[in-house]
């Protein structure tokens, strides 16, 4: 018995080592991504070039740095929120935007583009407000549904609210100017970070910071909260209240990043699976792993998005492509684990 416990502890230590390795890899990736781009020639820029060219320096400091930081926050938020959702709902097909959050944000953004003008901060603000409105509607609706457990009720409510918002979005697309507004809506729906400057990064930082910190600190409670109400209660939690807190934090971070980046799909769905596959279902390891993997994944995709072609590739297309490819590999492989 004691041997088994020691073995598990040793296993966790190895995994922690891997986690640090992952963090190191993320830092290296971040550094490389900063040097990659279309200027002056497509590919990596050398440090001497960076020092010698004023335009390159401005590009580096004013565009690439805030953009990559936002990409990292985007991946971290979506992946960790996805993990939290999947655990709390006991449902591996859920991603963080499904409770009316993504469709609410999309509707809000399109509404702002069509009726209030396409000022970036306004679009972002309205999108964030509607994302939270989507969550609230889903929650209130779930409480009114008369049958099923609360997981099923929340899922159904989320689907209904999302459908309402997407029909509203359809109307807005019909009304939009096809040359100016519609491309903007489309671009927003496919996601992308091309307009990020420091001001926009800083505008989402507080919400993302709070959301991610709370999730990170509560990661060990997730294991308990994933159990049934009775079991969780008997282990000393108040499951409803704590679940609501964690969900709100996850949605807060998601709404913030979605409001600047648009609808970037698949990160929140695939990365949690990848993390669990590598580090096991224990949220104490899987959550930080999901954050690191998510950050790395979206940095990678965004770097490709701005470097591959002379035009910007919508980020959502790349995350969907790489996400789906990874998904297929995960589903068909016999499974790999770093430990045990």
């Amino acid at each position: 018995m004691s041997g088994l416990i020691e073995g598990r502890a040793a296993g966790r230590q190895t995994s922690q080592g891997w986690l640090w390795g992952l963090a190191g890899a993320l830092v290296v990736l971040f550094g490389l991504a900063l040097l990659a781009g279309r200027y002056p020639t497509p590919g990596l820029m050398s440090l001497s070039q960076l020092n010698g060219d004023e335009l390159a320096m401005r590009l580096f400091l004013n565009l690439r740095l805030p953009r990559l930081l936002t990409a990292m926050l985007l991946g971290m938020s979506l992946a960790s929120a996805g993990l939290v959702f999947q655990m709390l709902f006991n449902n591996p097909l859920i991603e963080p935007g499904f409770l009316g959050v993504s469709q609410g944000a999309a509707f809000g953004a399109a509404f702002c583009i069509v009726f209030l003008g396409s000022n970036a901060l306004a679009v972002q603000g309205v999108a964030a407000v509607f994302a939270l409105v989507g969550l609230m509607l889903s929650y209130l609706l779930a409480r009114r549904i008369r049958y099923g457990g609360w997981v099923l009720r929340l899922v159904l409510a989320g689907i209904a609210v999302s459908a309402l918002f997407s029909s509203g979005l359809g109307v807005l697309k019909y009304l939009a100017d096809p040359l100016t507004q519609l491309p903007e809506i489309t671009f927003w729906l496919l996601g992308g970070l091309s307009g990020i400057v420091w001001a926009r990064f800083l505008s989402i930082l507080p919400a993302v910071w709070i959301g991610l910190s709370v999730l990170f600190l509560f990661r060990w409670r997730l294991n308990i909260l994933a159990l049934s109400d009775e079991a969780a209660f008997s282990l000393g939690t108040t499951p409803r209240r704590e679940r609501l807190l964690l969900l709100t934090m996850a949605v807060l971070a998601t709404a913030a990043v979605v409001s600047v980046a648009g609808m970037v799909g698949w990160v929140g769905l695939i990365v949690p699976h990848l993390a669990r596959r590598m580090f096991g279902a224990d949220a104490r390891l899987a959550l930080p792993a999901a954050m690191l993997l998510g950050g790395g994944f979206s940095i990678l995709c965004d770097t490709l998005a701005r470097t591959l072609l002379s035009g910007e590739i919508p980020l959502g297309i790349l995350t969907a492509f790489f996400g789906a490819a990874t998904f297929v590999i995960l589903m068909t492989s016999r499974g790999f684990r770093l430990e045990r």
């Binding site: 671009f187 091309s194 035009g311």
Partner: peptide, 8 residues
């Protein structure tokens, strides 16, 4: 490209 960003 029609979606060229600032860097391009």
């Amino acid at each position: 490209e029609s979606d060229a960003g600032a860097e391009q």
